[in-house]
Simulated scan of single mutants.
Amino acid sequence: MDGRSYRTLSTVLSKVNILDPMNPNRSTALFGGKASGILNWNDLKYPHFYKHREQIRALFWRASEVDMTHDIKQFPNLTASEQTAFLKIIGLLATLDGPQTDMAARISQYSTDPSVKSVMATIADQESEHNHSYAYVLSSVTTLDKQIESFETGRTDEVLLERNSRIMEIYNEFAQNPTILNVLKAMVYTTLLEGLFFYSGFAFFYNLARDQKMVGTSTMISYINRDELQHGRFISELFRATLAEHPEYNTSEFTDWVYDQFRHSVEQETKWSHYILANIDGIDLLEMEGYIKYRANKMLRLLGLSEIYQDHTENPMKWIRAYVDNFDDTKTDFFEQKSRQYTKTSDLNGFDEL
């Protein structure tokens, strides 16, 4: 670097033409490159993106396939605290998942790699089904006015508004000013959203299921959880590959920015968990805080960075694994093997192992 801030180097991206046959079929870059728009899965700049596509597509499901019969009967018998948390957490999840459909589409619009467009199309479809599933759950267990109130939570709850303020800022900045830097930042927050922001909410539903309560909803959440894990893996891989193509952003300044976002996000997720889970039997808030930090460490490793919570490298809530079929911790695939080599990168040059 010559002393200039990475902010002064940000290349503005243009929406990519749908078909441009004068360009090669194999893209020259993920963003800001050239490609014809013709996708040949046997001739990719990043061949392992095909495996991500297959893993994501293998998780296809529909909300209407989940039996909510018992949940309909059980919801009125939940405690007042459980009902309130149930409705507010559904509101949170809808607030986060709804924009993800749009975010996947927007990243796709600016990517010059047709394989990225294809994977993002599948992610967008799944995010759309996630959002539909929240409406499906609520329509099964409560009245229309309560359903509408739950979906209003993201617009009216002060704690939730504060919690989501920074992700809203980063996403909207990318929408208004689509630069290489802003797409990198948006991918960092997409990784945070997919791998951290949902997890106190997921824990609430899994905790109910431990007591044989609202098992249909918990099943739905486990499907969403597995989708999000795969989305997070692909987005973090896309982030690392994009950064490798644009080493001018591989700076201590940007590394520090990423760490700051993780610390801030952990603080906000912890605050939210204390707010929403304080009166829920079966959830230890101190354990929940440790779990949030464990998730942050895990997502940092996927991005190619070092852990920042050295006392939280193991999952303190191992019972959760039963509700996602051990998907996160025990399945070994190409990506997980690859990510482990980044765990000891230095804080000041954390992306150089790309």
Rank of each mutant, 00 (worst) to 15 (best):
Ser10Pro: 02
Val12His: 06
Leu13Arg: 00
Asn25Gln: 09
Phe31Trp: 04
Gly33Arg: 07
Lys34Cys: 04
Asn40His: 10
Asn40Ser: 09
Trp41Phe: 10
Leu44Ile: 02
Pro47Glu: 04
Gln55Ile: 01
Ala58Val: 02
Phe60Ser: 09
Phe60His: 12
Phe60Cys: 06
Trp61Tyr: 13
Arg62Ile: 05
Glu65Trp: 10
Val66Glu: 10
Asp67Trp: 00
Asp67Lys: 07
Met68Thr: 03
Asp71Ser: 11
Asp71Lys: 13
Asp71Pro: 12
Asp71Gly: 07
Phe75Arg: 07
Thr79Asn: 13
Ile89Tyr: 14
Thr95Phe: 14
Met103Ala: 09
Met103Tyr: 13
Arg106Tyr: 08
Ser115Tyr: 02
Val116Pro: 04
Val119Leu: 15
Met120Cys: 15
Thr122Gln: 14
Asp125Gln: 13
Glu127Cys: 10
Glu129Asp: 12
His132Ile: 05
Ala135Glu: 14
Val137Arg: 12
Ser140Cys: 13
Leu144Gln: 14
Leu144Trp: 11
Lys146Thr: 00
Gln147Arg: 12
Thr153Ser: 12
Thr153Glu: 14
Gly154Trp: 00
Asp157Asn: 15
Arg163Met: 07
Arg166Ala: 04
Ile167Cys: 07
Met168Gln: 09
Phe174Cys: 04
Gln176Ile: 02
Ile180Trp: 01
Ile180His: 05
Ile180Thr: 08
Leu181Tyr: 08
Leu181Ser: 04
Asn182Cys: 01
Leu184Asn: 02
Ala186Arg: 05
Leu192Phe: 01
Gly195Tyr: 00
Leu196Gly: 01
Phe197Arg: 10
Gly201Ser: 04
Phe202Glu: 02
Tyr206Thr: 00
Asn207Tyr: 02
Ala209Glu: 08
Asp211Glu: 12
Asp211Gly: 11
Gln212Gly: 06
Thr217Ala: 08
Ser218Leu: 01
Tyr223Ile: 00
Leu229Lys: 04
Ile235Ala: 12
Ser236Gln: 06
Glu237Asn: 11
Phe239Ser: 02
Arg240Gly: 06
Ala241His: 10
Thr242Pro: 09
Ala244Ile: 01
His246Gln: 13
Ser252Gly: 09
Glu253Leu: 12
Thr255Leu: 08
Val258Leu: 05
Tyr259Ala: 07
Phe262Asp: 08
His264Glu: 14
Thr270Tyr: 13
Lys271Ala: 14
Trp272Gly: 03
Leu277Thr: 02
Ala278Pro: 07
Asn279Phe: 01
Ile280Thr: 08
Gly282Met: 07
Gly282Asp: 06
Leu285Trp: 05
Leu285Arg: 04
Leu286Ala: 13
Tyr294Gly: 01
Tyr294Leu: 07
Tyr294Asn: 06
Arg295Pro: 12
Arg295His: 05
Ala296Ile: 00
Ala296Pro: 10
Ala296Asp: 07
Met299Cys: 11
Glu307Thr: 00
Ile308Asn: 06
Ile308Leu: 10
Gln310Phe: 08
Gln310Ile: 06
His312Phe: 11
Met317Leu: 11
Trp319Met: 05
Phe327Gln: 09
Asp329Ala: 12
Lys331Arg: 10
Lys338Ser: 08
Lys338Gln: 10
Lys338Trp: 11
Ser339His: 03
Thr345Asp: 08
Ser346Val: 02
